[in-house]
Computed example of a mutant assay.
Amino acid sequence: MISTEYFKIVVEFSPLISIDLVTMYNGKVLLGKRVNKPAKDFYFTTGGIVRKNETFENAKKRIAKGELGIEISQELAFIGVFEHFYDDGIFEGVSTHYVNHGYLLDLNEKLENIPKEQHSSYKWFDIDELLQSNEVHQYVKDYFKQLNIGEDR
């Protein structure tokens, strides 16, 4: 694992490759209230960075297990590539740039006991509700604009 000192240098000078899982069940979207920067205190999708020498498939599986507590084996629908820019990064005074790959995870059953390391609480949102909410981060709303789901664009 990379040390915090080296990771800070990477964040300062390079974009990070990341994956977000847009998790849905029965037409509702699971979002968690973030406990860490960036986007602290906003409802956001689960996700994380892709590690060096880790395939996207393995990263999706690791993120689903770590953040949702589930094993995934199905192919996830690719939503698109998004750029996320944050001034409130994990390191004081260092902005963060993510090259984010969005994937749709459509569940067959509703999740109940979800890990709370990255999110303090979880909520299932109707799409129109999340698009109108000030508690949901704009970058999450962008996924649904890309998918052209929900309110009139």
Rank of each mutant, 00 (worst) to 15 (best):
L107P: 07
N100G: 08
L104F: 02
V99W: 04
V94W: 04
F125W: 11
L104P: 03
L111H: 10
F91C: 03
K123W: 08
K123E: 15
E92V: 13
K110P: 02
Q118P: 00
L111Q: 11
L131D: 01
K116H: 13
D128S: 11
P115H: 09
H101C: 04
H97Y: 08
H119Q: 13
E129Q: 06
K110Q: 15
D126P: 04
L107W: 06
D88K: 03
H101L: 11
E109G: 12
G102I: 06
D126L: 12
T96C: 00
G89D: 08
H119W: 07
P115I: 06
D128A: 10
V136M: 05
Y98R: 08
Y103C: 11
Y98F: 15
D106W: 09
H119N: 14
H119F: 07
L105N: 00
N113F: 13
K116W: 06
H119L: 02
Y103S: 04
L111F: 07
G93I: 03
L107A: 02
S95L: 03
S133R: 09
K116I: 14
L105V: 11
V99A: 07
P115A: 06
I90R: 00
G102C: 00
Q118W: 07
E92R: 07
N113S: 13
N100Q: 02
G93S: 01
P115Q: 12
W124N: 03
E109I: 12
Y122H: 12
L104V: 15
F125I: 10
E112H: 05
E112P: 03
N113G: 05
E135R: 03
S121M: 14
S121N: 13
Q118S: 14
K110V: 14
D126Y: 01
D126S: 08
H97K: 11
E112G: 07
F91V: 14
N108C: 02
N108T: 08
S133W: 12
Q132E: 13
H97L: 12
N113A: 13
H101T: 05
Q132K: 15
T96Q: 12
Q132T: 08
L130E: 01
V99R: 02
H119P: 00
V136R: 02
L107C: 01
E109F: 04
K116N: 15
T96E: 15
S120F: 00
P115F: 13
E129A: 11
E92W: 01
N100C: 10
S121I: 14
